[in-house]
Design a protein around this nucleic acid. Structure first.
Length: 567
RNA sequence: UGGGGCGUAGCCAAGUGGCCUAAGGCACCGGUUUUUGGUACCGGCAUUCGGAGGUUCGAAUCCUCCCGCCCCAGCCA
């Protein structure tokens, strides 16, 4: 059930599935490159989310389809925000999603010495200069969106003076922020990125990779394209907001003696309804404690989705379904849900678990006895075989599966009605026990021994089939039910503050769930189907005595829809 | 008001002048099967492509104008 066959089929047919692959296919056809090389370039300042997943599927996927390679490159040019913890987490997430960078793991910081040398080259060519203006002054000189900027008074320093100043910047002779190196392009350009962009800034910060070797650091614009060129990247794919950086990307490549000529192409970033995907906002959710951490199962981070129980293959399937374009779009969360159900339906073992238990006593079943009944592990996969499930006189069923006064289309248990207990027997409710306040506390039923396994020899039919757990054998557990983190499709769209749309009911912890015995041995991270309810993944918080499950996603529930319609 | 992009159904998205009275998927609505009210299967769901003109025998695809939305004024990426 992996997606690999589909991917290779697409590669064999060599059918571009989006405009990026079309560009690559054209370049392959024209023989522009010997080998296609892409790169996935995260900054290690946070955890990867599903939007990065889309990017990885594009970069690693397209490279593989064209027999090329994809590098993992950390864009680590700002040591004030980057941490080793994030580097480790990112690598784990890329691997989990199913991608392999082989020996091609790079850091922009690997290139610091070369980047510095090229900066001197620009200075010597009179294409870069050291500016003494403060950050505030530079902003003023930059002009506005509609008004051109003004040249800095230091724009026409001599090459020698610039070289000297820049060397002293590197040598730590100046305070943080005292000077910057700027490209000398065009202060009147309509494109603000071309108004003498900053290439280097002075920043005394400990870098996770280079430690304290540097006190000047290159900016993204200066480091990124040159790192692409050094690595031999042919297609540098990024999101739309970098579109107007492309002239600068090209300017630098054209004015530097780089070993190759990469090209940048832009596609639209992923937006998903009912969640947020900006690193700034995800960081805020974590830091302000609205979630338990980066791997909270409600988070759209890869770590969160993994803990929630989403299979990596479902995420890859999702990526291929949403496509790659330049349209601003918001993908319906329902599509992700569908991909998850589709994958898990084929692969997840079936088990029985009662989330909200109601006691049932089978009056005509002998006291103190029990038996084992055969249950199918996965009707979608015969090879998964069967298992034995214990049955006894006292059972747990789902409270929602009984109604004393049922509405018209309620097919489940009700006084006097016969239903099937899945893989067990037909039972009929003969009495309802209540407490002083009138709450149902227990059901008394009779079973028909001739219906063992769940079929009646006389061919009589029942409308309802219920899941159940033998009370004597049940394993107690905690189950965590999740909903979307936000109640609005686009959090914060109305008020400007996403917190106004946060869903206060996004987590519901059920402490008294009863599971069939086999569930007590579920491996952490494994996702199973609780029959008739949904898919659930064993959480790392589980202990041998008490498993904890996260609801990955519920089964489609047409009964809930019927109920809703009925009133 | 400068620069750069984008507009095909509720959502995503094919389409690159004639086979488009516009693929496919999600969602939704019907129905069949069913020991999961799950799955699977069948059927429905844009005479119309942001709008208006124009070119053409013929336009979602070409041209013109207009409208709407997104991004850019970090020494963030």
């Amino acid at each position: 059930m992996t997606k690999a066959p589909e991917t290779s089929a697409a590669a064999i047919e060599n059918k571009p599935r989006d405009f990026i692959r079309e560009i690559i296919a054209d370049d392959v056809a024209s023989g522009r490159h010997d080998e296609i090389v892409t790169r996935f370039p995260p900054e290690p300042n946070g955890y990867l989310h599903i939007g990065h997943g889309k990017s990885m599927c594009l970069n690693f996927g397209a490279a593989a389809e064209f027999q090329g390679r994809c590098h993992l490159r950390f864009d680590d040019t700002n040591p004030t925000k980057e941490e080793q913890e994030f580097i480790n987490a990112i690598e784990a997430d890329v691997r989990w999603l199913g991608f392999n960078w082989g020996k091609h793991r790079y850091f922009a910081s690997d290139n610091f010495e070369q980047l510095y040398a090229w900066a001197e080259h620009l200075i010597i060519e009179a294409k870069a200069y050291v500016d003494d203006l403060s950050a505030d002054q530079i902003r003023v000189y930059r002009g506005t969106l509609t008004e051109p900027g003004k040249d800095s008074p230091h724009r026409n320093r001599s090459v020698d003076e610039n070289l000297d100043l820049f060397r002293r910047m590197r040598a730590g002779k100046f305070e943080d922020g005292a000077r910057v190196l700027r490209a000398k392009i065009d202060m009147a350009s309509g494109n603000i990125n071309l108004r003498d962009p900053v290439l280097y800034r002075i920043m005394r910060a400990h870098h996770p990779r280079t430690g304290d070797a540097w006190c000047i650091y290159p900016t993204y614009d200066y480091a990124h394209g040159q790192s692409d060129a050094i690595e031999g990247v042919t297609h540098s794919l990024c999101t739309l907001e970098f579109e107007d950086h492309r002239p600068l990307y090209d300017w630098l490549i054209e004015n530097l003696p780089t070993p190759s000529r990469p090209r940048q192409y832009e596609f639209s970033r992923l937006n998903l309804s009912y969640t947020v995907l900006s690193k700034r906002r995800l960081t805020q959710l974590v830091k302000d404690g609205h979630v338990s951490g980066w791997d909270d199962p409600r988070m759209p981070t890869l770590a969160g989705l993994r803990r929630r129980g989403l299979p990596a293959a479902a995420l890859r399937d999702f990526a291929s379904r949403i496509g790659v374009t330049k349209n601003d779009s918001v993908v319906d969360m329902a599509l992700l849900d569908h991909c998850v159900r589709d994958n898990l339906n084929k692969l997840a073992p079936r088990r029985m678990a009662v989330l909200d238990p109601l006691k049932v006593v089978i009056e005509n079943y002998p006291e103190g006895e029990s038996e084992e009944l055969e249950a199918v592990n996965n009707p979608e996969c015969d090879a998964d075989g069967t298992r034995m499930v214990p049955f006894g006189r006292e059972l747990w069923i789902e409270r929602a599966d009984f109604m004393e006064e049922p509405p018209k289309k309620f097919f489940r248990l009700t006084p006097g009605r016969e239903v099937r207990l899945r893989y067990a027997y037909y039972v009929t409710c003969i009495d309802v026990i209540k407490d002083a306040r009138g709450n149902v506390t227990e059901l008394r039923c009779n079973y028909d021994p001739a219906t063992k396994g769940g079929n009646s020899p006389d061919g009589r039919k029942v409308k309802g089939t219920l899941h159940w757990v033998s009370a004597a054998h049940a394993v107690g557990a905690e189950v965590r039910l999740y909903e979307n983190l936000f109640t609005a499709e686009m959090p914060g769209a109305e008020s400007g503050d996403m917190l106004d749309d946060i869903n206060s009911c996004s987590l519901d912890v059920l402490a008294n769930c009863q599971l069939e015995p086999a569930l007590g041995k579920t491996a952490i991270g494994e996702t199973v189907q609780f029959e008739r309810q949904g898919y659930f993944a064993a959480d790392p918080d589980s202990t041998p005595e008490r498993p904890v499950f996260n609801r990955t996603i519920g089964l489609r529930d047409t009964w809930a829809k019927v109920q809703k319609k009925g009133g």
